[in-house]
Design a binder for these strands. Structure first.
Length: 496
DNA sequence: CTAGGGTTAG
């Protein structure tokens, strides 16, 4: 399930990324210097073309990039190693990995740069497996991988099922070749180990590395944070400052996230003053992390202050704030804020904004309003609800006692109900004592995760409340037979 | 003249 979400998320990121970066200022500079391309007097040299291609890769300027490719063919630059490598990189960065591979295959000779470009291309296109296969192929070729290659190969192991072993193997190669003093390599290794929950290996490597730069510290701090060692993240942050390394906006975001999960307002406020001192409050990522930190820390008013003081607000900031109100039980204020956002008409709400709004309705028990907002999504904003918004609506109906409507929605929606949906539905079945629907929900949950005792327990509870003691005994037998581990405080019939 | 690291936010 986690893997599936990751793929979906990857797609969303890709789309957003293309939209945000499709044309930035530097591209126009490149365009001007290339004015010769369309038959004007000065012909661009191969050096200019190469720099322009790099620029196209960075700014995702697809149009100019393919134009240059065509020009390369016309001008006989097709076999230039530098230009071809840049072309591989361009196609890969623009998510046209098939074209990148085609260019690579058509090259008469390869060098570490062309190999690395394609390996990295597979990696950033979410094809870590192919990236690693290509790396293996490279090892069999005449060309030896360098630091750049290792960084790309190691990054390919992140989020790739079963790639932890590859990461360790790559680490061994790195040590053998003496690349373990390179900070680029070290930071990618730390991130990979942390990603797989092997925080011990990450710590070991971090400790062995001398002359660590800010990114290596950032990797380790976020590694701690990801693995819920938030206190260690804060400690390392302090240590980093003692070493006179000055935090970047990345550092501030990560450390604020750690403060959020610890719900520590005191430290969060200290980081906030540092944010102001560094002038990072303008960075929307940092501002967002601040709002989230104050919300989770229980100071929703200070969260609102941050939002008010941020001049360039985007939809994510508003959404975080709405979610903050929703989660602390101030549903009406969440909806007021949302209406305020709508009246400004500067920003357009997206699916996640509606998740926040529906969460607010859910926590406040506003069934009618929830349904209204859910319908508005499609009619007024042309959005198609994804599984998260359906989950809110289903939960809204179920919590209000309309279990059959909730169940019907699960059938009607264009998604398969996930674990979260069945699980919240089961809770509602428990509240309203619905044996039939409760049994179905529990069966689905057990099928999805056979080792979790919770659905057995809840169903047994529903049976017990109806005096169905034979069924309670059956549940007990199943748990025993299937050797399901019970956690502390676990009992057959809860005492309300 | 070509390739590489860290949250890419809710």
């Amino acid at each position: 399930m986690i893997r599936a979400n990751w793929i979906v998320f990857g797609k969303i990121c890709k789309k957003d990324y293309l939209r945000k970066h499709s044309k930035s200022a530097s591209t126009y500079g490149a365009l001007e210097s290339l004015s010769g391309i369309n038959g004007l007097t000065a012909k661009p040299t191969k050096y200019v073309l190469c720099t322009a291609l790099t620029s196209c890769a960075k700014t995702l300027n697809w149009h100019l990039g393919i134009h240059i490719h065509a020009y390369m063919i016309r001008s006989g630059y097709e076999d230039n190693l530098f230009l071809s490598s840049a072309l591989v990189d361009f196609y890969a960065k623009c998510f046209a990995i098939v074209d990148a591979r085609k260019v690579f295959s058509g090259m008469k000779i390869h060098d570490p740069v062309s190999w690395t470009s394609l390996i990295n291309g597979f990696s950033i296109n979410g094809q870590g497996r192919d990236a690693l296969l290509l790396f293996k192929k490279m090892l069999c070729s005449q060309i030896k991988p360098n630091c750049h290659t290792f960084v790309s190969a190691i990054s390919a192991c992140v989020g790739q099922n079963g790639a932890l072993e590859h990461c360790s193997t790559l680490h061994a190669h790195v040590i053998k070749r003496g690349y373990d003093t390179n900070n680029f390599v070290v930071s990618s290794l730390i991130a990979c180990y942390a990603n797989w929950g092997h925080i011990g290996d990450a710590i070991l490597l971090f400790g062995e590395t001398s002359e660590k730069d800010i990114v290596v510290y950032n990797s380790m701090i976020s590694g701690y944070s990801q693995n819920l060692y938030s206190e260690d993240a804060l400690k390392l942050f302090v240590e980093m400052k003692k070493k006179n390394l000055s935090p970047t906006d990345h550092t501030l975001c990560t450390i604020l996230n750690a403060c959020s999960s610890l719900a520590v307002l005191l430290q969060g406020r200290q980081v906030h003053s540092l944010v102001i001192k560094m002038g990072s409050a303008r960075n929307v990522f940092v501002a967002n992390a601040l709002i989230d930190m104050y919300s989770k820390g229980g100071d929703i008013d200070d969260a609102q202050c941050v939002l008010d003081q941020t001049s360039k607000k985007d939809i994510v900031l508003w959404t975080t704030m709405i979610m903050g109100y929703a989660q602390c039980g101030r549903g009406s204020e969440a909806l007021e804020l949302f209406d305020c956002l709508l009246t400004k008409q500067e920003l357009v709400p997206d699916n996640i904004t509606f998740t926040a709004v529906l969460t607010a309705c859910n926590h406040a028990g506003f069934l009618d309003k929830g349904v209204e907002y859910f319908n508005k999504m499609t009619t007024d904003y042309g959005l198609s609800p994804d599984i998260d918004q359906y989950a809110c609506l289903i939960d809204l109906y179920a919590r209000n006692g309309n279990l059959s409507k909730a169940r019907a929605l699960m059938e009607e929606m264009p998604h398969d109900p996930n674990y979260v949906i069945w699980s919240s539905f089961l809770s509602s079945c428990k509240i309203y004592g619905d044996v039939e629907l409760g049994r179905e929900a529990a069966e689905q949950l057990i099928k999805m995760d056979p080792c979790n005792a919770a659905p057995y327990l809840t169903l047994a509870h529903i049976y017990a409340r109806k005096g169905l003691w034979n069924e309670v005994a059956e549940m007990r037998r199943l748990v025993h037979q299937r050797r399901i581990r019970k956690s502390a405080g676990w009992s057959w019939v809860e005492v309300d």
